[in-house]
Design a protein around this nucleic acid. Sequence first.
DNA 1: CTAGTTACGTACCGATCGATACGAAACCTG
DNA 2: CAGGTTTCGTATCGATCGGTACGTAACTAG
Lengths: 207, 207
Amino acid sequence: MTPGGRPLAFEPDAALDAAVVTFWRHGYEAAGMAELTQAMNISRPALYRAFGDKAQLFRAALDRYIALNMGYVEDALEKPTSREVAEAFLTGNAKAVTTPGRPPGCLSVQAMVTDEADAFSQLAENRRVIQTRLADRFRRGIQEGDLPSDEDAEELARFMITLTTGFAIRATDGESQDALLALARRSLAIFSAPNSNSPRTEGMTHD
Amino acid sequence: MTPGGRPLAFEPDAALDAAVVTFWRHGYEAAGMAELTQAMNISRPALYRAFGDKAQLFRAALDRYIALNMGYVEDALEKPTSREVAEAFLTGNAKAVTTPGRPPGCLSVQAMVTDEADAFSQLAENRRVIQTRLADRFRRGIQEGDLPSDEDAEELARFMITLTTGFAIRATDGESQDALLALARRSLAIFSAPNSNSPRTEGMTHD
DNA sequence: CTAGTTACGTACCGATCGATACGAAACCTG
DNA sequence: CAGGTTTCGTATCGATCGGTACGTAACTAG
């Protein structure tokens, strides 16, 4: 059984890595099959046999991208305090989107601009999972007392995601890692000021 | 002289508005000529006669988009204090990227994800102009004393642009206007905390 | 009217898109 | 070896891409 047949002439993981880079650089639609096959150094039919169609290839590439390039999320979530979680999340992202030798920005953001419902929903789901885990972590922080009791965990998570999304686009626009790290650091000011649920004691915001 | 000839059968500005919406929704490359001509309700040759090629049409659409949908930038820059400038800029953007009846997000961000060097450089230039004007305004704020003397005007401007870029993507992801407005308000916490140039930035959590 | 000018849109261009048919080649089993 | 299985890549598919040639229609000037 399992007679074997002709063996593969390429390393699937290595080819997938090349696909990751291509999608990372160009997004989903702008990454053509011609460029993908050239980057992966395999023929077009070989790509379809190994990975299915373009949407399935993207799915596989996204999974590998997350596994290889978004480890900072897990690391951040394990930090002892909410502030350290936020700091690790933001600085980890700032570094990930400006890593020398890799495309600037974030595959998940580059490919968000697409009509393809498949790719879009996968990316939105990935974002939502991270945002939920951050919110859960901040909720724990409220319970443990390292965040004010009237803090809005969802809003804080939304703030984090919004910042990292911005980091990704800024990186593709050529922003330096140092500049993004400085922004990450200063963004933590949100932990040192009254939140939106606090009563308007200090006359800081006047709508 | 100038005998006239056959008159135009469509309103150029109305057609351009339709092009704006199409680029806004899909970005530069994903907006096909077929969809553009259908949205603009003119034939393909009519489009090329009136606007040149796709790149020129995009340029015209971008100019019109800026004129009609980015007025909040000018409004913000005229505010009396740096903090009010920032608040108006952020809230104005939050509203602009979630205006009912218009596509969510920002044309300038949607179209940033593209290989087309023409479109990309135009958008990058637009961003750079706004960022520079913000930085200039914040520099004035430092001179006038409404910002600390050790504040980094460039960094503050970078922070603003990064946030609004994030707002735009979050909007396309379905975030509500209220949620973005809350983020805009809370982002102003950066004005109430020591900046990165102050000695000993770390370890100042309130506890 | 005729001549000149400009815009009209059908029909089409070559190039590229994602995706495949198909015969040859490389492996295993017996 | 023969028979079965799997991958190989050339050559090609129809659809769509951005862009245009060209004959016709609508206007003005004389």
